[in-house]
Simulated scan of single mutants.
Amino acid sequence: MRPMKAVDGITRERFECNVVPAYEPVVMRGLVGHWPLVAQGRAGLEACLQYLTGFDKGAVVDAVLAKPGPTRAFSYKPDLDGFNFMHDKRPYAALFEQLWRYSHFPEPPSLAAQSALVPEALPGLERANACPLLDADAAPRLWIGNRATVPAHFDDSHNIACVAAGRRRFTLLPPACAPLLYLGPPDYAPTPAPMSVVPDLHTADPVRFPLIAEALAQAIVAELEPGDAIYIPPLWFHQVESLAPHLNILMNYWWRPEAAPGRADDLHLASLRLAMLALRHLPDGEREGWRALFGHYVFGARGEGLMHIPEAQRHLFGEIDAAQDALMRRDIAGRLKP
């Protein structure tokens, strides 16, 4: 493992021109150190929860609860026939009260409310604590809990994650590490994101998971303090450990630019599952044939490789507008009907 690249004093121009195109994770020290939420987090658990309560309108949020253990991971059960945590919906008031009670336990259960859309759950918090690198229409999500681990997973969106209270350790691995991470099924995971079945990369059983050592050799690691933020590019695997014993708060922003004016950029995971479903039953030779065609049609044919087709006649090889996109989606949806 090696330390993650870190920068100070990042501006939006530098972020858009240098950080995002590089397709590598970067820690941005002190990016949101000016947030009132960060100041309240530094003041302590009770002050921070009281501050958040001022924005609470009583909406219910997703909460998870797991028994205390060595890894404190929200993960699969050991035999993968379910998940090792309870899930329910509750108002923030109940969650805050439980976090306060658990702060008096020497080894409390792991409790967290994850991925709550801030404008709906705590309206106004997003305006009082705005990300300086994004437009206001990039709605943040809030992650709040005590000490716990989210195993290695990937998202298909750009991600800026801002630590507002507590400390978090991020372990990131490039997409090419997928074969080394013992990934669970993409349609059966503890969260909506595809996830590794290994609860904690750093304590993985080398007999059961021998490839993890090879994966960790390619990993980059960073520990973030309140006010720090991290940029995670799409598809990079990340394990996230909330380290403070009683209160950790993260506000993150997922976004994807439009593929073209009026065209949503939203088909990635759907196309992955569809390809798995369509090709799974084929013999190995035919699967290799499809691998070659995907390499050409999806990833290869561009630039000089298309010079034999007039630009106006490139159709799906070329640029398409929102109307063409909608027409193709309807055609594909029709082909999927039984």
Rank of each mutant, 00 (worst) to 15 (best):
Leu125Thr: 13
Ala138Gly: 00
Ala136Arg: 10
Ala161Arg: 00
Asn146Tyr: 13
Cys162Ile: 06
Gly184Arg: 09
Phe154Trp: 15
Pro132Ala: 08
Trp143Met: 11
Cys131Met: 02
Cys131Leu: 06
Phe170Asn: 01
Ala128Phe: 08
Ala138His: 10
Thr171Ser: 05
Ala148Arg: 02
Leu142Phe: 07
Ser157Ala: 15
Ser157Val: 14
Ala164Val: 01
Asp135Ile: 03
Ser157Trp: 13
Ser157Cys: 15
Ala130Tyr: 08
Ala161Cys: 01
Pro175Asn: 09
Ala164Leu: 00
Ala139His: 13
Arg168Val: 06
Thr149Glu: 06
Arg167Gln: 15
Phe170Val: 01
Pro185Lys: 15
Leu173Ala: 05
Ala152Gln: 02
Ala148Gln: 07
Trp143Cys: 12
Asn129Asp: 13
Gly166Arg: 03
Ile160Cys: 10
Asp137Val: 03
Ala152Leu: 03
Val150Tyr: 04
Ala164Glu: 00
Asn146Met: 14
Asp137Phe: 02
Gly145Cys: 11
Thr171Glu: 01
Asn129Ala: 12
Arg147Trp: 06
Gly166Glu: 01
Arg169Trp: 02
Asn129Pro: 11
Ile144Tyr: 11
Gly124Ala: 06
Ala148Cys: 14
Gly184His: 12
Gly166Pro: 02
Gly124Asn: 07
His153Gln: 11
Ala138Pro: 00
Arg168Gly: 07
Ala189Val: 10
Arg168Glu: 04
Cys177Glu: 04
Gly166Lys: 02
Phe170Arg: 01
Ala138Lys: 13
Asp155Gln: 09
Gly145Asp: 09
Phe154Ala: 03
Ile144Arg: 12
Cys162Val: 06
Tyr188His: 14
Thr171Met: 02
Cys131Phe: 03
Tyr188Cys: 09
Asn159Ile: 06
Arg147Ile: 06
Cys162His: 03
Leu142Val: 14
Arg147Gly: 13
Asp156Tyr: 08
Ala148Thr: 05
Arg141Phe: 02
